[in-house]
């Protein structure tokens, strides 16, 4: 998986592409920590180019979302690809996490 990181208007942005699975959780969390260390509390995770997401990766997204809530901020999952949308739906996480542009790709 590739992770492109940027900060924009006081918001951390992580653009992911490829397979987001247990092998990729550590680099994802490291990238998040680097942005948190800059004082950023709001996050956007771009998921349009992710072709598979497993439970470990979902747990990492839930962890980020919880942390943002504890900071009275928000983590938004942006443009989830079709497989990610279906997986979010089947796990019920589409209701528990902030997902934007849910009609993308349909």
């Amino acid at each position: 998986m590739k992770i492109a990181v940027s900060d924009h208007q006081h918001r951390g942005e992580l653009s992911l592409s490829g397979r987001f699975d247990a092998h990729e959780v550590e680099p994802f969390n490291e990238a998040v920590k680097d942005l948190q260390a800059k004082g950023l509390k709001n996050f956007v995770v771009e998921l349009g180019d992710v072709d598979f997401i497993d439970s470990a990766a979902l747990a990492a997204l839930v962890g980020l979302s919880r942390w943002c809530e504890s900071q009275e901020a928000e983590a938004v999952l942006h443009h989830p690809s079709d497989p990610v949308r279906v997986i979010l739906e089947l796990t019920g996480l589409d209701q528990a996490l902030a997902v934007s542009n849910p009609q993308h790709g349909e």
């Binding site: 598979f52 497993d54 439970s55 979902l58 079709d82 279906v86 997986i87 739906e89 089947l90 796990t91």
Partner: peptide
Amino acid sequence: EWRILPTIGAIANHVSS
């Protein structure tokens, strides 16, 4: 229980298309 739902999601999304 830890892995099955993402697997079903990936299979269902792809094969349905």
